Simulated assay, not measured.
Amino acid sequence: MNILSIQSHVAYGHAGNAAAVFPMQRLGVEVWPVHTVQFSNHTGYGDWKGRVFDGPAVEEIVEGIADRGVLADCDGVISGYMGSSDIGNAVIHAAEAVRAANPRAMWCCDPVIGDVGRGIFVRPGIPEFMRDIAVPAADIVTPNHFELEFLTGTPVRDLAALRRALGALHAMGPRVVLATSVLLEDTPADAIDMVASTAQGQWRVRTPRLELNANGTGDMVAALFFVHHLRSGNPSEALSRAAASVHGVLSETARAGTREIRLIAAQEEFVTPTRTFAAETLA
């Protein structure tokens, strides 16, 4: 399996491609990483060095890959943080090129916009670009709770509201939705949910809530779900497998007391998770 991963990158720690590429490789996937930014570290530290690349720079790299004549062998494109709208356009062009070469290929878009407690943290124009252009063109989207509400304009506080929001997101275009970090009024205080949704059904995995604020978690879970979905074609199975691995890595991270996910130290969790979680059908 070959996946084109167009995301940000940090030299220290794990975020963007630095959080997504290795888990996919550990699962036996050939990954073609293209960086949209090159930073010294996650911006959550408050200071960093590096730069944001422009759309033409990203397009040039993708064109070089296409010149190798390999796009027909690409099974999917995954994208995350976009530093500017022209990078977003480059990502869309890349997804279109891959799907033209391989009609079975899918585009998984992690619509990075913001998070609960932080609000919107991307540059002006990016939230609207995600909502109006990127999400409608994607096959799979992986918003967190905050992003699900923003994209659909729907407050999500209970199961009925969650269903409405997922339906609204499907109506925008994506066939598969993975909603992460979902907290409803009836979610136990010591738990957190992930929900997968398609036209055929909706499934939830509830895992123990861990007290940590780690960088790169969303990038990791999107990559894991995407790989498992491409392999199985089963969103319920992909949800269960991704949740198990993420919980294992984050458990190790919490024990270590670090804000950087223990991607390398806990790498066996990607292949043989310590604990498994069954996906339940939402009633």
Rank of each mutant, 00 (worst) to 15 (best):
W107T: 07
L230T: 07
R209N: 04
Y12T: 12
V116D: 14
A11I: 14
L250E: 12
A254K: 15
E237I: 13
G64R: 12
N213S: 15
R262L: 10
R241H: 10
V34D: 03
G257R: 11
F150E: 05
G233N: 03
L250P: 11
A189P: 05
T187A: 02
R204V: 13
A191C: 15
T187Q: 06
S236I: 02
L250F: 12
L169F: 10
V156D: 00
L159F: 00
W203N: 03
L159M: 01
C108Y: 06
W107V: 02
H14F: 11
E59C: 00
F22R: 02
M1Y: 07
L230Y: 09
R123D: 12
H228D: 10
C74W: 00
A191N: 13
S197W: 09
A238K: 00
N41R: 10
L71V: 01
A19Q: 06
V112G: 01
V195S: 01
E128G: 08
S251L: 13
P208I: 10
Q202M: 14
V249E: 05
I113R: 08
R259N: 14
L184W: 05
A214H: 06
N89H: 13
P124Q: 08
N234K: 09
A238V: 07
L151T: 02
E260W: 08
A66G: 09
R163F: 00
A105C: 04
A168E: 11
R123A: 14
L162G: 00
A279K: 06
T43R: 06
T154M: 02
A171I: 00
K49G: 15
T152Y: 04
R164G: 00
A72S: 14
D115A: 09
F146D: 07
A94E: 01
I92K: 14
G173N: 06
P155L: 01
D139V: 07
G114I: 05
D132K: 11
R262C: 15
L263K: 10
A137V: 01
Q25F: 04
A66I: 03
A160H: 04
G44Q: 12
G44I: 08
P111K: 08
S197Y: 10
I113V: 14
V21C: 12
D75A: 15
G64N: 14
R164N: 11
T180G: 03
G13W: 00
L159K: 01
F39T: 04
M220L: 14
H145W: 03
S8P: 05
F146V: 11
G16R: 01
A266M: 09
E149S: 09
A97P: 03
T281V: 15
V37P: 04
G83Q: 05
L71E: 01
A254E: 14
E59M: 06
A18T: 06
R259A: 13
S240H: 08
E96G: 00
P111L: 01
G80K: 05
A57G: 13
P33F: 09
G55P: 11
M172I: 00
A179D: 02
W32H: 13
A244I: 05
V52A: 15
G167N: 11
Q267Y: 06
A15V: 15
G80W: 01
H42L: 05
I61T: 14
G201Y: 03
G88Q: 04
V249A: 05
E60T: 15
T43S: 11
